[in-house]
């Protein structure tokens, strides 16, 4: 990473908790929630950035994992609240570490067959197949009355994390931000590792990678599963942030939003998802306050990024990526 990118990354990482802290001191709880929203969306996009940014896999179905993570939190909490056991005699839980673990493992397990099927295709077919899988799960959630169906599912009390008062907005922000930092550290290590080298090679030239003796398919499959797991964790946190889960978390709009976050911030760049999420939420908040049609202006920004600044916000701040 160039010194300029390092500086931009650290600045972005410092800015978000600084903003949350300022909001705490000023008593502006709403802005703490906004900062938390940025952190959660950034975490989801870090997940997608593994597949899309490093591997060049344009998954249009990552809402599936975001939503499954959310439903893992919602369903476990609801069952715990109602003291009803889940299937196979398992009890619900309101423990966030347990919920996170379930969300991550569930997403990994679901991503494996989806990846096995969809990674046999590429380009526009890959986009369509991942979309189709996500929509299947979306319609399943809509027609599942036990957990709210179309109306969604409320989590009455935010789930608990040992040593953290999750009901306090700032404490919850710190928790989410710490998980985002952990995911970013993982992404950074991953990108620099042997696996990361093979994954980036599969994006640049899969024919060359195969000619070296590394099967692009297996590298992509592992990346897809890891990517889903991180996005699933974000989904569980998103549910807890809003204390609400609905099928909209699973819809293709959400998949598109995640792609927008990654492209807006700078795909394949460490801080890209954070930059993208910050910009997106700022737009949503500032322009959304002025007009209901704020997404029109977001579209204009996205056009500008695609035509003028391929590297996204990080590309503007830190120049082109360096691969050592």
């Amino acid at each position: 990473m160039s010194p300029r990118e390092k500086a931009a990354t650290l600045a972005l990482l410092a800015l978000l908790p600084a903003a949350a802290l300022a909001a705490l001191l000023l008593g502006e709880t709403f802005y703490i929630t906004l900062a938390t929203r940025i952190a959660v969306l950034a975490l989801a996009a870090v997940g997608l950035n593994i597949a899309l940014g490093l591997g060049g896999l344009v998954s249009f179905g990552h809402a599936a994992f975001f939503g499954l993570g959310g439903y893992a939190a919602g369903v476990l909490a609801t069952n715990a609240f109602n003291a009803e056991p889940l299937a196979f005699g398992l009890a619900g839980t309101t423990s966030m570490p347990a919920i996170s673990l379930v969300a991550v493992l569930l997403c990994g397990l679901v991503a494996l067959p989806i990846g096995l099927v969809s990674l046999r295709t590429s380009g526009v077919y890959f986009i369509m197949i991942t979309l189709a899988f996500a929509q299947m799960i979306y319609y399943f959630a809509i027609s599942w009355p036990a957990y709210g169906g179309e109306d969604g599912l409320s989590i009455y009390v935010r789930n608990a994390f040992p040593g953290v008062e999750t009901a306090k907005p700032f404490s919850f922000f710190v928790l989410v931000f710490a998980l985002l930092l952990a995911a970013l550290a993982l992404f950074h290590r991953l990108q620099a590792s042997r696996f990361g080298a093979a994954l980036e090679a599969s994006r640049q030239n899969p024919v060359r990678l195969a000619a070296l003796g590394i099967s692009p398919f297996s590298i992509r499959l592992v990346a897809f599963v890891l990517s889903a797991m991180v996005t699933g964790l974000a989904g569980a946190l998103f549910a807890d942030l809003n204390r609400f889960v609905s099928p909209s978390m699973l819809s293709w709009h959400m998949s598109g939003e995640l792609i927008v976050l990654v492209i807006l911030g700078g795909k394949g760049r460490l801080a890209g998802p954070l930059a993208g999420a910050a910009l997106y939420v700022a737009f949503e908040h500032v322009l959304g306050g002025l007009t209901e049609r704020w997404q029109f202006f977001l579209g204009l920004v996205l056009l500008a990024v695609v035509f003028l600044a391929r590297g996204g916000l990080i590309g503007l701040l830190a120049g082109r990526p360096r691969h050592g």
Partner: peptide, 29 residues
């Protein structure tokens, strides 16, 4: 070739492929 990678990294990936495992996730290459 791998256009984004340096000449050195192009060759390093070949050495990595020969050594076998690309499923190593943490140690920087």
């Amino acid at each position: 070739l791998l256009p984004d990678f340096s000449a050195l990294r192009n060759i390093m990936l070949a050495a990595q492929a020969r050594q076998g495992s690309s499923l190593r996730f943490l140690r920087p290459v």
